[in-house]
Amino acid sequence: MEKGGISAILFDLDNTLVDTATAGQLALSKVCELLRSKLKDTNTSDICQRFARKLHEERFDPSAGRTIDDVRINHWHEALQEAESVDPGRALASDCYYTWKTTRLQALALSPEVLTLLQELKCSYKLLLLTNGDAQTQREKLEAVRCEGLFSNVVVGGEHAEQKPAVSIFTHCFEQLGVKPQDCIMVGDSLDTDIQGGFDAGVQATVWINKSTDALPENSVSPDYTIPSVLDLPNVLAKLK
């Protein structure tokens, strides 16, 4: 692939390069199986959906003195209590959490097509992985996916004072790569963090991964390009030449 008017590409990780959503659903299904073997006459799907909502609303503060594992075991404990109206004990909550965590990590992987794409892009562009999330969780994902060698730099939001969409973390990325904002594009699935952050930081173009082909939400930032899969990125790069 020939280099166009840019020299660097910033990639998001979750649901951009790896299908974290599908891995998460598989992990919840595994926990449902576990709960059906432990609890009788229980709506296991309700328990799992309660956990999923807590995970979605999670605001982890590492300075509070608890690990992310502790916080998420507590999510499962609360979900079990709410659904069962009794306290089933933290041992079951811990079993649920580690079943979910292990299954999700095992399911995370770069597809052969995405791996080939990154290997080809690496020959022409500086690639940087910029992912939000607490440090432990994201580093565990990176280890599971084994993709760090494909990037010039990996930046995990939880290891910095601010995460996407803050301009400060994008500025850090530009400094790490030795490039200017206008030399880069930002590729990600989140309008609120990836696209808004890239726009605010002044990158040459933002590329939104919209797998569901949903319409752009009202009052949302407008991406420069919208594609259904990261595999369509070469078409965007061709237009930027």
Rank of each mutant, 00 (worst) to 15 (best):
M1C: 05
K3M: 14
I6G: 01
S7D: 15
D12I: 01
D14K: 02
D19R: 02
A21W: 10
A23C: 12
K30P: 04
C32E: 12
E33S: 12
L35S: 03
S37Q: 15
K38M: 09
L39V: 11
K40G: 12
T42P: 07
T44H: 06
T44M: 06
T44G: 02
I47C: 04
A52D: 15
K54G: 14
L55D: 15
E58F: 11
F60W: 08
F60M: 09
D61S: 05
S63C: 09
G65T: 06
R66Y: 05
T67P: 11
D69G: 05
D70T: 14
V71A: 15
I73K: 09
H75N: 07
W76I: 13
H77D: 14
E78Q: 11
D87I: 08
P88T: 09
P88W: 07
L92R: 04
D95Y: 04
C96T: 09
C96G: 01
C96K: 01
Y97M: 13
T103S: 13
T103V: 09
Q106R: 15
A107M: 05
L108A: 09
L108V: 07
A109E: 13
L110C: 13
L110I: 12
S111P: 12
S111L: 07
P112E: 12
E113I: 01
S124A: 14
K126N: 11
K126W: 00
L127Q: 09
A135I: 02
Q136T: 08
T137R: 06
E140F: 03
K141V: 07
E143S: 15
E143V: 10
E143G: 11
G157C: 06
E159H: 10
H160F: 06
Q163G: 08
K164D: 03
V167I: 14
V167P: 02
S168E: 11
I169N: 00
H172I: 02
L177H: 00
P181Q: 04
I185V: 10
D189Q: 01
L191W: 00
D192E: 11
T193G: 03
N210H: 06
S212C: 10
A215I: 08
N219Y: 05
V221H: 02
S222T: 13
I227P: 08
P228E: 04
S229T: 08
